[in-house]
Protein backbone atom coordinates (compact mmCIF):
# COMPACT_ATOMS: atom_id res chain seq x y z
CA UNK A 1 0.00 0.00 0.00
CA UNK A 2 1.37 3.39 -0.99
CA UNK A 3 1.71 6.04 1.66
CA UNK A 4 0.32 9.51 1.15
CA UNK A 5 3.81 10.93 0.74
CA UNK A 6 4.56 8.40 -2.02
CA UNK A 7 1.47 9.46 -3.93
CA UNK A 8 2.43 13.11 -3.55
CA UNK A 9 6.04 12.70 -4.73
CA UNK A 10 5.06 10.35 -7.55
CA UNK A 11 2.47 12.83 -8.84
CA UNK A 12 5.12 15.56 -8.96
CA UNK A 13 7.94 13.64 -10.63
CA UNK A 14 7.57 10.22 -12.21
CA UNK A 15 3.88 10.61 -13.08
CA UNK A 16 4.17 14.26 -14.03
CA UNK A 17 1.02 15.44 -15.80
CA UNK A 18 2.93 17.00 -18.68
CA UNK A 19 5.86 14.69 -19.22
CA UNK A 20 4.20 11.34 -18.62
CA UNK A 21 0.61 11.96 -19.74
CA UNK A 22 0.69 15.17 -21.81
CA UNK A 23 -2.26 16.61 -19.95
CA UNK A 24 -2.79 20.34 -20.24
CA UNK A 25 -0.46 20.63 -23.22
CA UNK A 26 -2.57 23.24 -24.98
CA UNK A 27 -2.25 25.89 -22.33
CA UNK A 28 1.27 24.68 -21.57
CA UNK A 29 2.34 25.55 -25.11
CA UNK A 30 0.29 28.72 -25.42
CA UNK A 31 1.14 30.39 -22.10
CA UNK A 32 4.78 29.41 -21.67
CA UNK A 33 6.34 32.35 -23.49
CA UNK A 34 7.46 34.10 -20.31
CA UNK A 35 8.14 32.78 -16.82
CA UNK A 36 5.78 35.28 -15.22
CA UNK A 37 2.64 34.18 -17.05
CA UNK A 38 3.69 30.54 -16.76
CA UNK A 39 3.97 30.92 -13.00
CA UNK A 40 0.55 32.59 -12.82
CA UNK A 41 -1.16 29.78 -14.71
CA UNK A 42 0.73 27.14 -12.72
CA UNK A 43 -0.45 28.58 -9.40
CA UNK A 44 -4.00 28.74 -10.71
CA UNK A 45 -3.80 25.07 -11.76
CA UNK A 46 -2.57 24.00 -8.30
CA UNK A 47 -5.38 26.00 -6.72
CA UNK A 48 -8.13 24.56 -8.91
CA UNK A 49 -6.83 20.98 -8.69
CA UNK A 50 -6.61 21.32 -4.91
CA UNK A 51 -10.26 22.41 -4.76
CA UNK A 52 -11.88 20.20 -7.41
CA UNK A 53 -10.20 16.86 -6.67
CA UNK A 54 -11.63 16.57 -3.12
CA UNK A 55 -15.10 17.57 -4.36
CA UNK A 56 -14.99 15.08 -7.19
CA UNK A 57 -13.66 12.49 -4.75
CA UNK A 58 -16.72 12.90 -2.53
CA UNK A 59 -18.99 12.83 -5.58
CA UNK A 60 -17.35 9.65 -6.85
CA UNK A 61 -17.49 7.82 -3.53
CA UNK A 62 -20.90 8.91 -2.29
CA UNK A 63 -22.90 9.24 -5.51
CA UNK A 64 -21.38 7.78 -8.65
CA UNK A 65 -19.50 4.58 -7.81
CA UNK A 66 -21.25 1.23 -7.98
CA UNK A 67 -23.13 0.88 -4.70
CA UNK A 68 -22.05 4.34 -3.55
CA UNK A 69 -25.60 5.32 -2.68
CA UNK A 70 -25.63 2.85 0.20
CA UNK A 71 -25.95 5.74 2.68
CA UNK A 72 -29.41 6.48 1.28
CA UNK A 73 -30.75 2.98 1.55
CA UNK A 74 -28.81 -0.27 2.23
CA UNK A 75 -30.60 -1.87 -0.73
CA UNK A 76 -28.66 0.38 -3.13
CA UNK A 77 -25.28 -0.90 -1.80
CA UNK A 78 -22.94 -3.32 -3.57
CA UNK A 79 -24.52 -6.31 -1.84
CA UNK A 80 -28.00 -4.82 -1.69
CA UNK A 81 -31.02 -6.03 -3.59
CA UNK A 82 -31.08 -3.18 -6.14
CA UNK A 83 -27.50 -1.99 -6.64
CA UNK A 84 -27.24 1.39 -8.30
CA UNK A 85 -24.28 2.17 -10.55
CA UNK A 86 -24.19 5.74 -11.82
CA UNK A 87 -20.60 5.67 -13.04
CA UNK A 88 -21.66 6.39 -16.63
CA UNK A 89 -22.60 9.87 -15.42
CA UNK A 90 -19.11 10.61 -14.14
CA UNK A 91 -17.85 12.58 -17.17
CA UNK A 92 -20.71 15.03 -17.16
CA UNK A 93 -20.71 15.38 -13.36
CA UNK A 94 -16.96 15.98 -13.18
CA UNK A 95 -16.93 18.57 -15.93
CA UNK A 96 -19.97 20.33 -14.46
CA UNK A 97 -18.25 20.49 -11.06
CA UNK A 98 -15.05 21.80 -12.63
CA UNK A 99 -16.75 24.43 -14.75
CA UNK A 100 -18.90 25.71 -11.91
CA UNK A 101 -16.09 25.66 -9.33
CA UNK A 102 -13.87 27.63 -11.69
CA UNK A 103 -16.63 30.18 -12.18
CA UNK A 104 -17.29 30.34 -8.44
CA UNK A 105 -13.62 30.64 -7.55
CA UNK A 106 -13.26 33.42 -10.10
CA UNK A 107 -16.11 35.38 -8.54
CA UNK A 108 -14.90 34.81 -4.96
CA UNK A 109 -11.33 35.79 -5.77
CA UNK A 110 -12.52 38.90 -7.59
CA UNK A 111 -14.63 39.95 -4.59
CA UNK A 112 -12.35 39.11 -1.68
CA UNK A 113 -8.81 39.19 -3.04
CA UNK A 114 -8.57 41.74 -5.83
CA UNK A 115 -4.77 41.60 -5.80
CA UNK A 116 -4.80 37.84 -6.39
CA UNK A 117 -7.46 38.34 -9.05
CA UNK A 118 -5.19 40.76 -10.83
CA UNK A 119 -2.51 38.08 -10.93
CA UNK A 120 -4.65 34.99 -11.66
CA UNK A 121 -7.77 36.54 -13.16
CA UNK A 122 -7.10 36.05 -16.83
CA UNK A 123 -5.96 32.47 -16.31
CA UNK A 124 -8.96 31.15 -14.40
CA UNK A 125 -11.39 30.88 -17.35
CA UNK A 126 -8.69 29.05 -19.33
CA UNK A 127 -8.52 26.41 -16.66
CA UNK A 128 -12.03 25.01 -17.07
CA UNK A 129 -10.92 23.45 -20.34
CA UNK A 130 -7.41 22.52 -19.18
CA UNK A 131 -7.09 18.76 -19.64
CA UNK A 132 -5.04 18.38 -16.49
CA UNK A 133 -7.99 19.28 -14.25
CA UNK A 134 -10.42 16.78 -15.76
CA UNK A 135 -7.53 14.35 -16.21
CA UNK A 136 -6.75 14.61 -12.50
CA UNK A 137 -10.36 13.80 -11.65
CA UNK A 138 -10.44 10.84 -14.04
CA UNK A 139 -7.12 9.43 -12.78
CA UNK A 140 -8.41 9.80 -9.24
CA UNK A 141 -11.46 7.75 -10.26
CA UNK A 142 -9.34 5.21 -12.12
CA UNK A 143 -6.87 4.61 -9.30
CA UNK A 144 -9.49 4.51 -6.54
CA UNK A 145 -7.58 6.26 -3.76
CA UNK A 146 -8.64 4.87 -0.41
CA UNK A 147 -8.81 8.06 1.60
CA UNK A 148 -9.59 11.69 1.04
CA UNK A 149 -6.04 12.65 2.16
CA UNK A 150 -4.54 10.53 -0.60
CA UNK A 151 -6.78 12.17 -3.18
CA UNK A 152 -5.83 15.65 -1.97
CA UNK A 153 -2.13 14.72 -1.99
CA UNK A 154 -2.53 13.48 -5.55
CA UNK A 155 -4.29 16.68 -6.61
CA UNK A 156 -1.74 19.02 -5.07
CA UNK A 157 1.19 16.90 -6.31
CA UNK A 158 -0.11 16.93 -9.88
CA UNK A 159 -0.59 20.68 -9.70
CA UNK A 160 2.94 21.24 -8.42
CA UNK A 161 4.34 18.94 -11.11
CA UNK A 162 2.48 20.94 -13.73
CA UNK A 163 3.80 24.22 -12.31
CA UNK A 164 7.38 22.90 -12.38
CA UNK A 165 6.99 21.81 -16.00
CA UNK A 166 5.57 25.10 -17.25
CA UNK A 167 8.08 27.26 -15.35
CA UNK A 168 11.01 25.19 -16.68
CA UNK A 169 9.88 25.35 -20.29
CA UNK A 170 9.12 29.08 -20.00
CA UNK A 171 12.62 29.73 -18.68
CA UNK A 172 14.13 27.74 -21.55
CA UNK A 173 11.98 29.54 -24.11
CA UNK A 174 13.07 32.92 -22.76
CA UNK A 175 16.70 31.94 -23.29
CA UNK A 176 16.18 30.28 -26.65
CA UNK A 177 15.16 33.58 -28.17
CA UNK A 178 18.86 34.42 -28.36
CA UNK A 179 19.92 31.22 -30.09
CA UNK A 180 20.03 30.43 -33.74
CA UNK A 181 17.26 27.86 -34.22
CA UNK A 182 16.59 26.64 -37.80
CA UNK A 183 13.77 28.87 -39.13
CA UNK A 184 11.26 26.08 -39.68
CA UNK A 185 11.70 24.84 -36.11
CA UNK A 186 11.29 28.23 -34.45
CA UNK A 187 8.51 28.62 -31.93
CA UNK A 188 6.40 25.52 -31.79
CA UNK A 189 8.71 22.91 -33.25
CA UNK A 190 11.61 23.52 -30.92
CA UNK A 191 9.25 23.69 -27.93
CA UNK A 192 7.98 20.22 -28.74
CA UNK A 193 11.46 18.80 -29.06
CA UNK A 194 12.67 20.43 -25.82
CA UNK A 195 9.63 19.11 -23.99
CA UNK A 196 10.46 15.65 -25.32
CA UNK A 197 14.02 15.92 -24.04
CA UNK A 198 12.82 17.20 -20.66
CA UNK A 199 10.41 14.26 -20.58
CA UNK A 200 13.33 11.87 -21.07
CA UNK A 201 15.13 13.62 -18.22
CA UNK A 202 12.10 13.35 -15.96
CA UNK A 203 11.81 9.64 -16.73
CA UNK A 204 14.92 9.05 -14.70
CA UNK A 205 12.74 9.65 -11.62
CA UNK A 206 10.97 6.39 -12.46
CA UNK A 207 14.04 4.54 -11.23
CA UNK A 208 13.35 5.67 -7.68
CA UNK A 209 12.01 2.78 -5.65
CA UNK A 210 8.97 4.06 -3.77
Amino acid sequence: MESTLDIFVKAIFSENMIFAYFLGMCSYLAVSKTVKTGLGLGVAVIFVLGVTIPINYLLENYVLKEGALEWLNPAYGVNGSSTINLSFLSFIMFIAVIASIVQLVEMLVEKFAPALYGALGIFLPLIAVNCSILGGALFMQDRQYSTMTDAVAFGLGSGIGWLIAIVFIAAIREKIRYSNVPPALRGLGITFIITGLMGIAFMSFMGIDY
Binding site: A184, G196, M198, M203
Partner: peptide, 16 residues
Amino acid sequence: PPMALIVVGIIIWIQR
Protein backbone atom coordinates in the same frame (compact mmCIF):
# COMPACT_ATOMS: atom_id res chain seq x y z
CA PRO B 1 5.97 9.17 -24.00
CA PRO B 2 8.71 11.72 -24.81
CA MET B 3 9.25 10.35 -28.31
CA ALA B 4 5.70 11.28 -29.28
CA LEU B 5 6.62 14.92 -28.71
CA ILE B 6 9.77 14.61 -30.74
CA VAL B 7 7.98 12.90 -33.66
CA VAL B 8 5.35 15.66 -33.73
CA GLY B 9 8.16 18.21 -33.54
CA ILE B 10 9.73 16.65 -36.62
CA ILE B 11 6.42 16.65 -38.52
CA ILE B 12 6.07 20.37 -37.73
CA TRP B 13 9.63 20.91 -38.92
CA ILE B 14 9.00 19.18 -42.26
CA GLN B 15 5.69 20.96 -42.78
CA ARG B 16 7.17 24.39 -42.11
